[in-house]
Amino acid sequence: MKKMLAILVIASLALCVISCKSKPKDEDIRKEVMAALSSNSALSGLSAEVKEGVVTVSGEVADESARSAVDAQLSEIKGVKQVVNNTTVAAPPAPPTNVPEITADDALTTAVRDAIKDHPTVKAEVKEGVIIVTGEIKRAELRTLMEKLQATKPKSIDSKGLVKK
């Protein structure tokens, strides 16, 4: 009988040891959590703490989908009982500055050459973003020419030297 009891005690002890071992410690969980976070470039800057299986993640993510990826990815890790998602979503990027887009001279010169191609009596040169138009044009064609020139996105157009007939 005593022998039986001893066996039981040993067996239960062994069981406990096995089960305790199979339950990951907080530090081990944390390692896995950090590995999971760093494997996802959207989450690599976050930090995490683990206490009794509860993971608390903090830091800043770019958007809402990255934020929900935190829960999805970490809740799958063995030993994680709960994910406390304290991450914040970064403010959206500043709206584009209100600066007009001006074509650089090289590209502008090419674009202007194409624009005046159908107007053989018109000449144009480009200087620091400004298109200087000379020559002559029929007034009926002036608007077509100007539409094409303005679409090349210059700084401005100097048409003082252009004779309208």
Binding site: L142, Q150, A151, S156, D158
Partner: peptide
């Protein structure tokens, strides 16, 4: 008139 002032770039396509 004649878009002559050179003070506007209208690029509405």
């Amino acid at each position: 008139p004649d878009f002559a002032s050179g003070d506007l770039i209208l690029n509405v396509q």
